[in-house]
């Protein structure tokens, strides 16, 4: 109930601003907040990166394990994405098993990376019954809206800076590497919210709470590789196509943080 009252207040405040062509933090409708991506922040992980968009911070860590392949793909490596909504990141997060938002976040980041075949899982085969498993874990450290794009930046930067472990006798030799993980494509995402008739990119938390609906569009060079709508509001076809265009356009900026 509390959230609902706040939502209505925030929404009317936000709409007043939007009607005057303004946003809460002074940005125009189609600008990102300040972005920062720092790779290799965790020495114990095979790959890592801290991404920040405005007040939102996500730390991605990558570890390898030797695992059994899935029976349906006995020659393919395993790629598993998980998200931790740390209670220290927001008073809205509670300790405990992942809730639907955390699961959705991890699965949507996973979807884009998997669709674009960012990592070649064929190269993860070790021997019959043994493959490498890549565990990508997304730790939300500070939540100020737009987890999805922050998560994609952190994940992608971590993958681009991941060292490939040395394997001997079917085991990982920790601390020794044979080179860098081969990355086939770079995925970026742009997240939009619709508030009344306005479409905003990179929503603040308060904009997310007041929004009718949300759409994340993940793209590789020339393809859309994942989309996910959230929220109960509707989109028009023209809205979606416009957002796809903007996602391709924003990619040019976002990719600079992934060099």
């Amino acid at each position: 109930m509390g959230v609902d009252v706040i939502r209505n207040l925030k929404r009317s405040y936000l709409l007043d601003l939007l009607n005057r062509n303004e946003r809460i933090d002074g940005r125009d409708f189609h600008s990102f907040r300040e972005i920062e991506v720092v790779p290799n922040v965790i020495e114990t992980a095979e790959g890592s990166a801290l991404a920040r968009i405005g007040e939102t911070q996500v730390l991605a860590g990558i570890k390898f394990e030797v695992v059994e392949p899935f029976p349906s793909d006995p020659d393919l490596g395993v790629f598993i994405t998980n998200a931790e909504f740390l209670p220290l990141a927001s008073s809205m997060f509670e300790p405990g098993p992942p809730d639907e938002n955390s699961i959705e976040f991890a699965r949507v980041v996973d979807r884009g990376l998997r669709s674009a075949e960012v990592v070649d899982l064929n190269s993860f085969f070790i021997e019959d019954g043994k493959v490498l498993g890549l565990f990508l874990d997304l730790y939300v450290l500070d939540y100020g809206g737009n987890l999805f794009d922050t998560g994609y930046l952190a994940a992608m930067s971590a993958l681009l800076n991941t060292k490939f472990p040395k394997i001997e006798d079917g085991k990982i030799i920790r601390g020794e590497y044979t080179g860098n993980l081969d990355i086939k494509r770079v995925v970026t995402s742009t997240t939009f919210v619709k508030v009344d008739r306005y479409i905003l990119i990179d929503p603040l938390l308060s904009e997310e709470l007041a929004a009718d609906s949300r759409l994340t569009v993940a793209v590789s060079d020339e393809f859309v590789v994942a989309m996910q709508k959230g929220g109960s509001g509707g989109f028009k076809k023209s809205d979606v196509l416009k957002m796809v265009d903007i996602a391709f356009d924003k990619r040019k900026d976002l990719i600079k943080y992934l060099r």
């Binding site: 979807r111 998997r114 669709s115 674009a116 759409l215 590789s220 020339e222 393809f223 859309v224 590789v225 994942a226 989309m227 996910q228 709508k229 109960s232 509707g234 989109f235 028009k236 076809k237 809205d239 979606v240 196509l241 796809v244 265009d245 391709f248």
Partner: peptide
Amino acid sequence: DILLLQMDGMLTKEEVEFAL
């Protein structure tokens, strides 16, 4: 009105438009 929309795989913008 579009109430649910997800996508995986690789599609051009024109293909997304066709799907919608």
